[in-house]
Nucleic acid binder design. Structure first.
Length: 563
RNA sequence: CGGGGCGUAGCGCAGCCUGGUAGCGCGUCUGCUUUGGGAGCAGAAGGUCGUCGGUUCGAAUCCGGCCGCCCCGACCA
């Protein structure tokens, strides 16, 4: 492609409202443009990157035998009603009606559509297993789109669905997809982690997320050697805390006038925050008021607490606390007439907790002796906690893919069944597997950029090589660059020729912004040496020059040696 | 949903407080010069000041409604 012909609107300055690096650079480099909140258009160079990612994903799907299909985004509401998601998903699902007032939805994912068809088509165990996949637009009315294409209301997703006769089959399909996903993210040149994750609204009984670490990430991942988990579900050994023993004669009242926070009580009594038990009263539909208790230096993890309770919860209102327990700020488990759910990190010893009376706490409180409780893993892990003796770190990450073991969550309500050898009707076991190519592109930019611009991984750059001809149009340098451009393509690489009538500074700056992995420059200097200068975009490292005679082999060699 | 901010030329911004000819830089167009790090000179085009209403002799500027966009949090397959 000739740059003079390419619609590549580069900008010297980032959009005023851009915050994330990938947002700034992808707009500046002319890859994407915004049309509305969370609504983005891909311009030619950006779309090339998107489609290169798609090609990698497609190749790995085909390799594991998945079959490509395409299903509508606009769908009847009925299957969504049957799975219960029409009501459970909430405002994130776009709902609309047609001219006959029939209810429709814009699909945010395609479990309903895929299962609907499989339920109609599959009759026998002989037809199983198989995997279907598509690249299709998803529509989600996100409460807060942000950061360019990192979180949008409309985006293309590769979504795959496996259909097996039983749990063992699902495990095999899941493992195959997991291996394919590992290969995809490696091939795309990302740094990534596969982490344990929550199943969220998808239902099912097991899931992993693929996380690409970068500063603009919205998720947090807890990492230790051999361990990686979304902070939502991560568990680790807490940092130990020095505790006095429990008081032998039972808890003792201490005055703590006006001290309602962990920090104030800790300072006033000379006890480390971890020596306190902090109470977090919540209300659930099933069991009413529950007092959730953690070590004073720990925080509640809402996802883990929801799992421990087995139902959703809300924080108790102040008046509920005052009516049932005591003055907010001074409540505690000892003597409280509500069930106590105690975090596992609260070990043996004598703790300080609220006394359920104004301006008083209790010292020397021992769980079990001084209050009954049930246990749960409720806390959010902190950096410095340990897994197998290794301290964890917490890194922000972009979620670039997620795989779920769905089981029969969708096949049951939609009637996706088969007849087994004995003629018995059985539910099909499903898995679902999603990847966002746009997020892969944004994550790659986040991970591989510098002051100058983007430094694409080799596999997903808009073009492999950018050829720059210096000098005036019609000069010998330009003619040599033109010949080199053809040789690069003859070498099997994609190439962009900067044939614009522009100064060298502008050409170099734009090349560095766009970030093609290899740059070849023909100027007066290099022409005299019969060669083109070669530079790797990563680190702007100078490489062996490429001789203009028989350039193909040398270009290929430089390319293969790139990181 | 709570909090904060912003809408003036393609991009980045000033002007608003204190009402009176709509500006700057970059970019764009034409011509000449220049061609190894975002060039120089000369000329030119380009704006319903988000929108609707109010106040006023007069509104980008003051007041009100609405719309849009961004950030933080909540939320989120």
């Amino acid at each position: 492609m000739r740059l003079s012909q390419l619609l590549l609107p580069t900008e010297r300055e980032p959009p005023a409202d851009a915050e994330a690096l990938s947002h700034k650079l992808m707009v500046r480099a002319g890859l994407i443009r915004q049309m509305g909140a969370g609504l983005w258009s891909w311009l030619p160079a950006g779309w090339r990157t998107h489609e290169r990612i798609v090609a990698i994903v497609r190749a790995e799907m085909e390799r594991v035998g998945a079959q490509e299909v395409l299903m509508p985004v606009l769908q009847p509401a009925d299957p969504w009603r049957r799975t219960g998601r029409y009501d459970s998903v909430g405002a994130e699902l776009f709902r609309l009606s047609d001219r006959r007032q029939a209810d429709l939805v814009l699909a945010m994912t395609h479990e309903e559509a895929m299962t609907f068809h499989v339920a109609q088509v599959v009759r026998s165990y002989r037809e199983l297993p198989f995997v279907l996949y598509q690249f299709q637009t998803k529509e989600r009315d996100e409460p807060r789109p942000r950061a360019g294409v990192l979180r949008t209301r409309e985006f293309v997703m590769k979504d795959a669905y496996s259909f097996d006769r039983d749990r063992e089959g699902l495990e095999r399909s899941y493992a195959a997809q997991r291996d394919a996903y590992d290969a995809i993210f490696d091939r795309c040149g990302l740094r990534w982690y596969r982490v344990e994750s929550d199943v969220g609204m998808m239902g099912g009984f097991g899931a992993h997320e693929y996380m690409a670490p970068c500063p603009a990430g919205e998720d947090e991942v807890a990492l230790a050697p051999g361990y990686a988990a979304n902070v939502e579900v991560a568990s680790a050994q807490p940092r130990p805390v020095d505790l006095p023993g429990p008081l032998p004669d039972g808890p003792a009242l201490v005055d703590t006038p006006g001290h309602t926070t962990v920090e104030e009580v800790s300072r006033a009594l000379g006890v480390p925050p971890g020596g306190l038990i902090k109470a977090y009263p919540v209300v659930t539909e099933g069991r009413g008021l529950v007092m959730v208790c953690l070590r004073g230096d720990h925080r509640v993890n809402d996802v883990k607490l929801t799992h421990a309770l087995g139902e959703t919860f809300r924080p108790a209102h102040e008046h509920e606390i005052a009516d049932r327990l005591g003055p907010p700020g001074f409540i505690g488990p000892a003597g409280a007439n509500v069930p106590v759910l105690l975090d596992e990190a609260v070990g043996d010893g004598g703790y300080v907790c609220g006394a359920n009376q104004p301006d008083r706490h209790l010292r020397g409180v021992e769980p079990g002796r001084d209050f009954p409780f049930s246990r749960g893993d409720l806390r959010r892990v902190d950096a410095g906690d340990t897994v197998d003796g290794h301290p964890i770190t917490i890194e922000p990450c972009i979620e670039v893919g997620q795989i779920f073991k769905l089981g029969t969550r969708y096949s049951d309500p939609l009637g996706a069944t088969y007849l087994d050898e004995a003629g018995r009707e059985q539910a099909i076991w499903m898995g679902s597997y999603g990847i966002g190519p746009a997020r892969i592109a944004a994550a790659a930019v986040e991970q591989h950029a510098d002051e100058q611009g983007i430094a694409w991984p080799r596999a997903i750059a808009p073009y492999d090589v950018e050829v720059i001809g210096l000098g005036r149009p019609g000069s010998r340098e330009r003619e040599a660059a033109e010949r080199l451009y053809h040789q690069v393509r003859a070498a099997g690489l994609t190439a962009l020729l900067d044939d614009r009538d522009a100064g060298p500074g502008e050409k170099f700056a734009d090349a560095e912004l766009l970030g093609c992995p290899l740059r070849l420059t023909v100027g007066k200097r290099s022409l005299e040496a019969g060669a083109a200068e070669a530079q790797a975009r990563r680190g702007l490292a100078d490489l062996e020059p490429v001789p203009l005679e028989g350039a193909e082999e040398a270009v290929r060699a430089r390319w293969d040696a790139l990181p």
